[in-house]
Design a protein around this nucleic acid. Structure first.
Lengths: 211, 211
DNA sequence: TCATGAGACGGACTGTAGTCCGCTATAGAC
DNA sequence: GTCTATAGCGGACTACAGTCCGTCTCATGA
C-alpha cells in the first residue's frame, strides 16, 4: 500500500494542500498505516459490509478512538482506501492523453470520464457504497466528488453553454451513485450495458447532432 | 391521518393487492395507527432525524418490536408516511388529466412528472432521505420507485425507441435522489432552479428537436 | 539529556437499529 | 359462551457507530 493519504487525512482530492501546519507524528503515521492495512485485509477477506470498525481497530492493534480520530467515520476510511485509485484517474484527466485528458472535444472527454469512472466503480462498489452512504450527504461533500463536478461543469459549459452547467454536472454524476450501480447489477445489468446506456444518454444531452 | 397502509403493509404502490390472505387483526390495526400518529407528530415537532424509533414506540405506547414487525425498519416507516402523498401523484399519472395523466406527448408527460416529483420531494426531503437511505439500496426496492421506473420506461420507449428504455428510466430517476436534493439545497440551489435544470436536460435527452 | 506541551492514544461509554422469543389477545369454530 | 390455533405483542438483548476524556508519547528547544 502506498502511503497516499497525508496527515490530517482530508486531502482526498489528490491535490496536495500546501503548508500542512505540522508534519505527521511518527506514532500517528504508524497507526494510520496499520489501520489501512488491516482494513484492506479484512475487507478483502470478509466483504466490506461484514467488517466492523471495532474489528479493524482490533486487527490493527490500536484503539477504536484512534481509528475515528484519524478517519472521522466509516466513510472516511473508505475514502482513504479508494484515494489511491481515484487519484490515478484524476491525474489522467488533468494531464493524461486525450480523450480523458485535455485536447479532445468536450463531449468525448465527458464520455471517456464516465466510462472510466463506471469501471472504477464496478471494481469497488462496496467501498464506494461505504464512502457515499455513511452519513447523510457524504457523497457530495467528499473532495473527489467536488473535483469530478468541477471537471464536468467546465466541459458542459463548453459543449452546451445554454444549459445550467453547475446543475447539469450534478445531473450527470447522479447515475454514478454506488447504490444505483449495485441495485442495477443485482437486477442483471452488466457493466457494458450501463456504459453503453450512459454514453448514449449523455451524448444526446451534450452533442450537437441528434441521433 | 387516513388509514392508507393496509395490513402486512407492503402495498406501497397504492395498487391494492387483492386477496390479502387475512384481514388485519384489531389490535394490529390499533397499534399501526398509534405508531403512525406518534411518528408524524414527533417528526413534525423535532425533525425527522432527531427522532429514534425507541422514542416513537414509547410515544405510541407500544413496544419496539411492534414497530419493527409492522414496518420492517426505519425506511419502512418513512415509506408508510409518504405513501398517502405518493399515491395521489400515482393516481394523477395513471388517470388524471394531461400532461401528467395519459393523453399528452411522452416528453411532456415526463417533464410534468419530474416537476411534480421534485415538488413532492422538496416538501418532504427528510422523510424521503429516511426512506431511501436506511438499508443499502432501499430506494430501488421500494414499490413506488418501481412504479415510477415503469412509467418512465414506457414513455422513454415511446419518445426515443433507440435508447435502452429500462436503463434510461433509471438514469432519469437518479437525479431525484433525496440525498442529492438535500445537498443541492444546502449549496444554495432552490426548487425552481432544479426544476428548470432537470426539465432542460431531460427535454434535450428525449425531444426530437434540439435546442 | 531532559523538560514540556501539543497532540495522539485507547477503551469505557452512550445512543440507536434491529432481533428474538416467551407471553397475550383475538377471531373463528362449535 | 368457551376453546384453541394463530397472529401479534413487547421489552430484554445484541451489535455497531461514534464520542469523550484521562493518560501517554513524541518532537522540539535549551
Amino acid at each position: 500500500m502506498k502511503d497516499s493519504t497525508g496527515p490530517r487525512s482530508v486531502s482526498q482530492s489528490g491535490l496536495p494542500l500546501l503548508d500542512e501546519p505540522r508534519p505527521e507524528r511518527a506514532d500517528a503515521r504508524r497507526n494510520r498505516l496499520k489501520v489501512l492495512e488491516a482494513a484492506e485485509r479484512l475487507f478483502a477477506e470478509q466483504g466490506v459490509k461484514n467488517v466492523s470498525l471495532d474489528a479493524i481497530a482490533a486487527a490493527a492493534g490500536v484503539g477504536k478512538g484512534t481509528v475515528f480520530r484519524r478517519f472521522g467515520d466509516r466513510a472516511g476510511l473508505a475514502v482513504a482506501l479508494l484515494d489511491e485509485r481515484e487519484v490515478e484517474l484524476q491525474a489522467k484527466i488533468l494531464s493524461g492523453p486525450p480523450p480523458l485528458g485535455p485536447g479532445a472535444p468536450a463531449v468525448e472527454r465527458v464520455t471517456a470520464f464516465l466510462d472510466a469512472y463506471l469501471e472504477l466503480l464496478d471494481r469497488h462498489v462496496e467501498l464506494f457504497m461505504d464512502s457515499e452512504n455513511a452519513s447523510d450527504g457524504a457523497r457530495y461533500r467528499i473532495g473527489s466528488y467536488r473535483l469530478w463536478h468541477r471537471h464536468l461543469a467546465i466541459l458542459v459549459a463548453e459543449a452546451r453553454p445554454e444549459l445550467d452547467a453547475d446543475y447539469t454536472a450534478h445531473f450527470i454524476l447522479a447515475p454514478l451513485a454506488a447504490d444505483l450501480h449495485d441495485a442495477l447489477r443485482s437486477e442483471g445489468f452488466d457493466l457494458a450495458r450501463m456504459q453503453t446506456g450512459l454514453r448514449a444518454s449523455v451524448t444526446r444531452l451534450l452533442a450537437d447532432q441528434l441521433a
